[in-house]
Design a protein around this nucleic acid. Sequence first.
DNA 1: CCGTATCCGGGCCGATACTG
DNA 2: CAGTATCGGCCCGGATACGG
Lengths: 125, 125
Amino acid sequence: MDVTEPVFEHRAECAKVSRVLSRIGDKWSVLVIMLLRRQPQRFNELKRGIGNISQRMLTLTLRNLERDGLVSRTVTPSIPPRVDYALTQLGHSLAEPVQALGAWAFDHLDLIDAAQTRYDASADR
Amino acid sequence: MDVTEPVFEHRAECAKVSRVLSRIGDKWSVLVIMLLRRQPQRFNELKRGIGNISQRMLTLTLRNLERDGLVSRTVTPSIPPRVDYALTQLGHSLAEPVQALGAWAFDHLDLIDAAQTRYDASADR
DNA sequence: CCGTATCCGGGCCGATACTG
DNA sequence: CAGTATCGGCCCGGATACGG
């Protein structure tokens, strides 16, 4: 990155934090984390729990979460095979602020909807 | 959305929450919110503060935040024109859990980096 | 200074088919 | 059951040019 020192010196940290946050915001990760928060689950349990995610995206999401050390993957080589996913300790510690943010979102859904409606109405046509 | 009732009844809420969270995770919104948290700022102040954002994306980001009722936009029709952006009350209330998440990200950056390195190393080749 | 309009390349993501 | 492989659309987002 050619970040040419914009204004504050803590830019580099911001960039890193931003990278972490973009993982959280990638549409599926949060849902997976919330589902795993209650208990470990198998691949297709997660798939059904989320409902409209494609197999491909669930795989990718889980791989990324595993790579970040947030989710553990344990394979039981039986027939048929069994794979369990669970939050790591790191994953659980992340789940807390995520939960807080989710709670905020939930609490303010109607305010946001109202604001959007208002905005769209005033932006006539 | 054709969500065909997957497992739990609170799916609809999850979808809405997810929509809100995806706004937060869209790469720039969080940075804008953090910058506006300290004080209102003008367009190019924000641009310089972020450093590598394109004019287009800053505009879009601010429009979305304004649409959600998180940011206010006040125009002073002078020459040259002046536009100030500030967090609304709703925006400030969002800034808190976002800040918490940012703090978590910051605190665990090294753990995540380490996990990634470990993962990439074990995924040989 | 603060935007909007247009072009366009890359990557995200769903659909589908195939393996162990 | 739990994936990998491949293809293709489409949207995100940067670059550039222009207007109030």
